[in-house]
Amino acid sequence: MSPIRLILADDHVMLRQGTLALLAREPDLIVVGEANDGAEAVRLAEMLRPDVVVMDVRMPNMNGIEATRQICSRTLGVQILVLTAHEDDEYVFALLEAGASGYLLKTAPVSELVRAIRGVMAGESVMAPSIVRKLVNRVSGRKTHPAEDEIEALTGREMEVLRLLAQGMTNKQIADTLVISDRTVQTHLSNIFAKLAVSSRTEAVLVAMKRNLLQAP
């Protein structure tokens, strides 16, 4: 089995190199590139086509949110795992909406980071417990929820996209599976978000699970 190829994007050089040294102990992980900022992360992702980018949030030139958005829209099969000290709502929901598959805090042990890398590579959504609580609270605490007829208004194609989304697929993977364009997938996601009254991929899956929408017809 081929090793999981990684890019580490973090403007703190000592922390990045420390992470690299720790990950080097894992035989199935290999760091193929390091980025000092979001713009370099996008460039390296396009050039090296890694499996996973471990992405910080606050970086110079281009932050992790915009870098995640660009990588997810341009690059085939690259998963984004956020590794940051910041858990503010504005960062969490923006990154998940941009397409990040996981969100860990830098206080996590290395063993958890390793599991998360393997998890997002396997198509899972990997979240720190505090991030999961934010998502659940956001979904459960909404003052307004979409009515049942709005849920039923999801088209057959939107339901297909939603189910593939729940499997951890990227926009590109969904497009290839359904033989449609990336732009069409994004249009379907925008419609799904509006109908479910959510603003991110993970929220959409949570609401869909809560309403039993993911069962195959």
Rank of each mutant, 00 (worst) to 15 (best):
R5M: 02
R5K: 14
L6G: 12
L6S: 09
I7M: 09
L8T: 04
M14I: 15
G18D: 11
L22F: 10
L23G: 09
L23K: 06
D28A: 09
L29I: 04
V32K: 06
V32L: 11
G33V: 04
G33H: 04
N36D: 14
G38D: 04
A39K: 15
A41P: 03
V42M: 05
R43D: 11
R43W: 04
L44F: 10
E46Q: 12
E46C: 05
M47Y: 06
M47P: 00
M47V: 05
D51R: 03
V54G: 04
D56L: 04
M59C: 09
M62N: 10
M62Y: 04
N63T: 01
G64Y: 06
I65H: 09
T68M: 03
Q70G: 00
C72V: 06
S73Y: 02
R74V: 01
T75C: 14
L76G: 00
I80Q: 11
I80M: 11
L81Y: 12
V82F: 03
V82I: 13
L83T: 03
D88P: 02
E90Y: 09
A94G: 07
L95G: 06
E97V: 01
S101V: 01
Y103H: 07
Y103V: 02
K106A: 12
A108F: 03
P109M: 02
V110A: 13
L113S: 06
L113R: 07
V114S: 08
R115F: 00
A116Y: 09
R118Q: 13
M121F: 13
A122Y: 03
G123I: 00
G123Q: 00
G123N: 02
S125I: 06
M127K: 00
A128H: 15
P129H: 07
S130R: 13
V132Q: 14
V132D: 13
V132Y: 07
K134I: 01
V136E: 14
N137R: 14
V139Y: 07
G141Q: 10
K143P: 01
T144Q: 14
H145W: 07
P146L: 03
A147V: 05
I151K: 13
I151D: 10
E152N: 14
A153W: 00
A153S: 15
R157F: 07
E158L: 08
M159I: 13
R163L: 02
L164H: 13
L165P: 04
T170D: 05
Q173N: 00
I174C: 06
A175F: 01
D176F: 02
V179T: 11
V185R: 06
Q186W: 03
T187I: 10
F193Q: 12
K195S: 10
V198T: 13
S200E: 08
T202P: 02
A204D: 10
M209H: 11
M209K: 15
K210F: 11
Q215H: 13
P217A: 12
P217C: 02
